[in-house]
Write a protein that binds this DNA or RNA. Structure first.
Length: 283
DNA sequence: AATAGAGCCAACCGCCAGCTG
DNA sequence: CCAGCTGGCGGTTGGCTCTAT
C-alpha cells in the first residue's frame, strides 16, 4: 500500500502548536466539523498535515477534554484496567470520560508503572495488587465485582457505566461502528470480566447500561422489587427487578448505602431469574 | 547563579484495519 | 476481489520544566 508522505516531506509545519493555529483549527471545526482530516488543514488554511490536526484536536482542543491532574480514583481505574487490557490505551480511555489515550499512556509511563513497581516490591505498603479475579473498580461511576473464587456463575460481575463512558457518544446515538463495538467489548470485558454480548452493545447504543438493565428487568414488573443504589453522579437511582422470576429474596436488605452490595444482590437476583436468556426474553 | 540530570508531556512516526470505488 | 485512502492506535522521542548539586 502506498504511504502518504510524512508532514516534513511535504514542507508542512511540525512541532508545538501556536495559539493562532489552535484558534484556526477550533473555529474551523466548530463551523464545518471534521469529516475529512486530510483535506481539513488546506481548507482551514493551516500548514499542517491532517494527522497532526486530528491529534491536536483529539488530545487537546476538544471541548470535552478534562484537563488537570488525574484523581486517585482515575489512577486506580487505569491500573485495574491495565491489568486486564494491557497497553490498549484507547480502550482504557473509552472508560475514563474526558481523558485521552495519549494522556493515559503518559500517566502510565510516568507515574503508574513506577508506583506499581513499588507496590510489587513492598506489597503491604500502600496498595496490595489484586489478581484479575479480584478486580474491583472502586470509583463512583465504575463498579465491578469479581466472579467468585469457586467459579460460581451465580456471582456474575456487576457494572454501571454510562454510554458516554463506554462509547464516548451521547445517549441514543446511532448504531455503533465496528471500532466502537470493539471499544464496548473491551470495556465490558475490562469492567465485568466477562465477554461482551450483543445486548451490551445494544445497551450502550440505546442509552446506558444502567437504564438498559433497568428497562429490561422491569418489562415484567407487575410484582417488582426496587433496588436503590447510588448512581453515577446524581444520588440515588431506582432499578426494578421482576420478583416473579426470583425464588429467594431478602426484603430487609440494605441497598441504599453500598453500591457494591446492591450490585451483588442485583446480579444474584438476575442469575436466579434465569440469567441472560431471561433478560433477552424480558427485553 | 550555573549546570547537569531527571521527569514530564505534546507531538510525531509507522503500522494496521476498515471503508470505498 | 483488489488497491488506495483514511482514521485510529501504540510506541517513541524531542524539548521544555523542574530539581538537585
Amino acid at each position: 500500500m502506498a504511504r502518504a508522505p510524512s508532514c516534513d516531506k511535504m514542507g508542512l509545519r511540525k512541532g508545538p502548536w501556536a495559539p493562532e493555529e489552535d484558534q484556526i483549527l477550533i473555529s474551523y471545526i466548530q463551523k464545518y466539523g471534521h469529516a475529512n482530516w486530510r483535506k481539513l488543514p488546506k481548507q482551514a488554511g493551516l500548514v499542517r498535515c491532517g494527522k497532526s490536526c486530528r491529534l491536536r484536536w483529539i488530545n487537546y482542543l476538544r471541548p470535552d477534554i478534562k484537563r488537570g491532574n488525574f484523581t486517585l480514583e482515575e489512577e486506580e481505574t487505569i491500573i485495574k484496567l491495565h491489568e486486564v487490557l494491557g497497553n490498549r490505551w484507547s480502550a482504557i480511555a473509552a472508560i475514563l470520560p474526558g481523558r485521552t489515550d495519549n494522556e493515559i499512556k503518559n500517566v502510565w509511563h510516568t507515574h503508574l508503572k513506577k508506583r506499581l513497581k513499588q507496590y510489587q516490591t513492598k506489597p503491604d505498603t500502600k496498595r496490595n495488587p489484586k489478581s484479575k479475579s479480584e478486580m474491583k473498580c472502586e470509583s463512583s461511576n465504575c463498579i465491578s465485582r469479581s466472579q467468585s473464587e469457586s467459579g460460581d456463575s451465580s456471582s456474575i460481575t456487576g457494572n454501571i457505566l454510562s454510554s458516554t463512558e463506554v462509547s464516548g457518544k451521547t445517549p441514543m446515538s446511532p448504531q455503533p461502528s465496528s471500532s466502537e463495538v470493539s471499544s464496548i467489548t473491551d470495556a465490558t470485558t475490562a469492567i465485568t470480566g466477562r465477554k461482551a454480548n450483543n445486548m451490551d452493545i445494544k445497551a450502550v447504543n440505546m442509552g446506558c447500561w444502567e437504564s438498559f438493565w433497568s428497562d429490561a428487568l422491569s418489562a415484567d414488573n407487575s410484582s417488582a422489587i426496587s433496588l436503590n443504589f447510588e448512581g453515577v453522579n446524581d444520588g440515588f437511582q431506582s432499578h426494578q427487578v421482576p420478583s416473579s422470576s426470583v425464588d429467594v429474596m431478602e426484603p430487609d436488605y440494605e441497598y441504599g448505602q453500598n453500591l457494591d452490595d446492591a450490585m451483588e444482590f442485583w446480579y444474584d437476583l438476575f442469575i436466579k431469574a434465569g440469567g441472560e436468556e431471561e433478560l433477552i426474553k424480558a427485553f
